[in-house]
Amino acid sequence: MRINPSVKNALIDYLEGNVGKFVSLQEIINRAPREATDQEILFILSEGEFEGNIRKDRKQGLDGYTIVKSMEKKEKLNDVVLVISKPELHKFGLEGVQARNNQIETRKCFCDIIDSSKHFLRICSPFMERNVSAPDSIPDFGQRIANALKRGVQIKLLSRELALRRGNEVDWMIDIAESVGEKKSLEIRDYHFLNQTGTKIHSSTHAKMLIADHSMAYVGSGELREYSLAVNFEVGCQLKGPIVVGAVEIFDSMFQRGVPYDR
Rank of each mutant, 00 (worst) to 15 (best):
R257N: 13
L121Y: 04
E47V: 14
N101A: 05
A207T: 10
L224Y: 03
K76M: 11
Y191E: 04
Q154K: 15
L77V: 08
V153L: 09
L77T: 11
K69W: 10
K150D: 03
R130L: 14
K240Q: 09
G20Q: 03
F141K: 03
G222M: 07
K108I: 09
Q60R: 13
P5R: 06
E16A: 04
E187T: 10
L25R: 14
G241A: 12
V235G: 02
G96P: 03
C109I: 08
I138G: 06
G48S: 10
R122W: 04
V259R: 14
K76L: 14
V170A: 11
V231G: 01
I114Y: 11
S6F: 05
V248P: 04
G236S: 01
R165I: 00
P87K: 04
A146K: 09
K240E: 11
N195S: 14
K56V: 07
L45E: 03
H119T: 12
D213Q: 04
W172C: 02
E178G: 02
N53D: 09
F127S: 05
S204C: 05
V235K: 07
Q154D: 15
H192P: 09
N9S: 12
R34A: 13
I28Y: 12
P139C: 06
D175M: 06
L45P: 05
L164H: 12
S159N: 03
Y227D: 11
N18M: 06
V81P: 00
F193C: 12
P135C: 02
I243T: 12
K56T: 06
H214C: 07
A32L: 10
S24T: 07
N4A: 04
H214N: 15
L82Y: 13
V235F: 11
C111Q: 15
V80F: 13
L162I: 14
N232H: 09
T199Y: 05
V7C: 13
I12Q: 06
N168A: 11
G142D: 10
K73H: 05
V19E: 08
R166T: 01
E75C: 02
S133W: 03
I250N: 09
T197P: 01
L89V: 08
D213R: 07
I211Y: 00
K156L: 14
F141E: 08
F92W: 01
